[in-house]
Simulated scan of single mutants.
Amino acid sequence: MKTWAFVSDFDGTISKKDFYHLVIEELFPEGEALFKQWKRGEMLDIDFLSRIFTSIHLEEEELIKTILTLPLDNYIGPFIERVQKNGGDFYILSAGTDYYIKHIFDALGAENVEIISNKGHFKSKNIHLEIDKNDWSYSERYGIDKSKVIQKLKETYDAVYFYGDSEPDSHPAAFADVTFAKDALCGLLEKKGIAYIEADSFVDVEAYLRGRGVLVI
């Protein structure tokens, strides 16, 4: 078995803002009503995202420029390098779509990062999700079942660390060896009785891992 892996959510964890919020604010203000419907539990997560992502209406070049304005945790690049230098593998586990995440990580120049997310492609000025109901990681609500992914990774690694910020991350947190949490995820894990380490940034995560001897160089 490999030694360890660090798995991070993307929206709200690596990025400081969810991509769907960026779309609503800059391109699709009508999406605010959909956001409220979703929060009331009247829409599945994957249906909400599909509606938002097909309401962009930009040429791909302009869309990519917009994607690259998404604010990120400033320490994500150095943190990935630290993980890899210390023998860990870095994964992104997102219930969004790999379409925008790939563009951001291409711009960052981060190498050997595996993105596990809902597949997406650009077509007719929008992002279209490709949900495979026969895929082993399929979730009716999220498109991808993060819990199944963490459990599968644990078959390969001695230790799996996970970092997230919101409700979809409360499910895989039950299976990670150590979960780092920020924002709403902290309260959700407390209610579920799931242990976590509070971390507001990757600087905080690195400090914890250095203190435990996971990161030594």
Results as ranks from 00 to 15, higher is better:
residue 2 K to Y: 04
residue 4 W to C: 02
residue 5 A to P: 00
residue 11 D to V: 13
residue 12 G to C: 06
residue 21 H to K: 14
residue 22 L to Y: 01
residue 27 L to K: 12
residue 28 F to Q: 02
residue 29 P to W: 06
residue 30 E to T: 02
residue 31 G to Y: 02
residue 38 W to H: 10
residue 38 W to Y: 12
residue 40 R to V: 04
residue 43 M to G: 03
residue 44 L to H: 10
residue 50 S to Q: 13
residue 55 S to N: 14
residue 55 S to H: 08
residue 60 E to K: 15
residue 63 L to F: 09
residue 64 I to H: 08
residue 66 T to G: 08
residue 67 I to H: 06
residue 68 L to N: 05
residue 70 L to V: 06
residue 71 P to N: 07
residue 73 D to A: 03
residue 75 Y to P: 00
residue 81 E to G: 04
residue 83 V to R: 01
residue 90 F to G: 12
residue 92 I to K: 07
residue 92 I to R: 13
residue 93 L to W: 02
residue 97 T to A: 04
residue 101 I to D: 00
residue 105 F to P: 01
residue 107 A to M: 13
residue 109 G to Y: 09
residue 114 E to T: 14
residue 116 I to S: 07
residue 116 I to W: 05
residue 118 N to Q: 08
residue 119 K to S: 11
residue 124 S to G: 04
residue 124 S to I: 07
residue 126 N to P: 01
residue 129 L to N: 08
residue 130 E to C: 08
residue 130 E to W: 00
residue 131 I to A: 11
residue 134 N to I: 00
residue 141 R to E: 13
residue 142 Y to V: 02
residue 146 K to V: 04
residue 153 L to Q: 06
residue 153 L to H: 10
residue 154 K to N: 03
residue 157 Y to R: 08
residue 157 Y to S: 01
residue 161 Y to I: 11
residue 162 F to V: 14
residue 163 Y to M: 15
residue 167 E to P: 00
residue 169 D to S: 08
residue 170 S to W: 02
residue 171 H to N: 10
residue 173 A to E: 08
residue 174 A to P: 00
residue 174 A to R: 11
residue 175 F to P: 06
residue 180 F to C: 08
residue 181 A to N: 06
residue 185 L to K: 05
residue 206 E to F: 03
residue 207 A to P: 00
residue 210 R to T: 12
residue 211 G to F: 02
